[in-house]
Simulated assay, not measured.
Amino acid sequence: MWVRDDTCGLGPYRADLVGTYWRWEQDPALLVGYGRQQPEPLEARTEGIAHQLRGSNIRFTVYDLTGETPVPAGVTTLLPDSAVRTAEYVVMLAPEARGKGLGTAATRLTLDYAFHITNLRMVWLKVLAPNKAGVRAYEKAGFKAAGTLREAGYWLGQVCDEVIMDALASDFTGFSAVVTLVD
């Protein structure tokens, strides 16, 4: 684990978990949440992971630490724009990991890493407006609503707004797993 708290840890993005990542990505609730209309074949996902592992994006496997052994439970990704020291944030949780606070914990740990290791000044995301659970989890982790893209997404076949949220390094206060590692 690179960064952790009592319930959640972030570790390396792993090629040997491609089948697991793919299974999570094909979950209908995740497809709705991302506004995607079609699944992806495992073969295409397997081909794509090599590119992802070599790319400049920052990817973590999220681990559930509440049991006896760490269990992969999702992925978080930072898509950095190094010219302006910002990044877009994306999270994906396994169906069995949702509703346990892991999304909030993983998001907070990823922000901690972004601000204290990568030295980003701002992280932003887009979330479909009807995804109320996602919006609440992001707010608990430190994101704030910054604007709306009107009719930019789809939710269950209906056009919907996308909410833009951001988190600033200057606003990131409270417990830091990174700072406690170096103190």
Results as ranks from 00 to 15, higher is better:
115 F>S: 07
82 S>D: 07
34 Y>E: 12
140 K>A: 08
62 V>P: 09
183 D>F: 12
110 T>S: 14
65 L>S: 11
10 L>F: 12
146 A>F: 03
47 E>Y: 11
153 G>Y: 01
21 Y>P: 07
55 G>H: 03
173 T>F: 00
159 V>P: 14
135 V>D: 06
158 Q>D: 04
136 R>N: 12
23 R>A: 14
156 L>I: 05
31 L>Q: 07
40 E>G: 00
48 G>E: 09
83 A>T: 10
69 T>D: 14
11 G>S: 13
169 A>H: 03
137 A>D: 04
101 G>A: 13
75 V>L: 14
8 C>R: 08
81 D>N: 15
23 R>I: 06
69 T>N: 01
23 R>Q: 09
179 V>E: 02
3 V>N: 10
143 F>Y: 04
57 N>Y: 11
14 R>V: 06
44 A>E: 08
163 V>K: 15
102 L>Q: 05
171 D>P: 00
152 A>D: 15
8 C>Y: 00
15 A>E: 10
121 R>K: 04
75 V>A: 02
102 L>R: 02
134 G>W: 01
82 S>I: 12
26 Q>Y: 00
133 A>E: 01
19 G>D: 11
66 T>V: 03
123 V>W: 12
181 L>S: 13
84 V>D: 12
78 L>V: 00
113 Y>L: 07
177 A>K: 01
93 L>M: 02
123 V>D: 10
145 A>V: 11
167 A>D: 01
44 A>D: 09
89 Y>K: 03
6 D>W: 10
51 H>Q: 15
27 D>Y: 10
136 R>L: 10
102 L>N: 04
71 V>Q: 11
10 L>T: 05
18 V>A: 15
35 G>S: 12
73 A>Q: 07
52 Q>N: 09
137 A>Q: 11
149 L>R: 14
96 E>R: 01
74 G>Q: 14
110 T>V: 05
90 V>W: 01
42 L>H: 06
171 D>I: 02
118 T>K: 08
2 W>I: 15
75 V>K: 07
127 V>P: 13
19 G>R: 09
93 L>P: 06
44 A>K: 14
177 A>H: 05
150 R>K: 15
112 D>P: 04
47 E>F: 12
85 R>G: 07
183 D>Q: 06
9 G>P: 03
68 E>L: 11
144 K>M: 12
137 A>F: 03
166 D>I: 01
171 D>N: 08
177 A>D: 00
135 V>E: 15
83 A>Y: 04
167 A>C: 07
129 A>F: 07
34 Y>C: 00
137 A>P: 08
157 G>V: 08
132 K>F: 04
163 V>P: 13
8 C>F: 05
145 A>L: 14
75 V>W: 09
94 A>S: 15
141 A>H: 01
31 L>N: 04
101 G>T: 06
78 L>C: 13
151 E>D: 13
91 V>E: 07
96 E>Q: 07
15 A>P: 04
146 A>P: 11
14 R>D: 14
170 S>A: 11
6 D>K: 05
55 G>Q: 07
157 G>P: 03
17 L>G: 06
56 S>C: 05
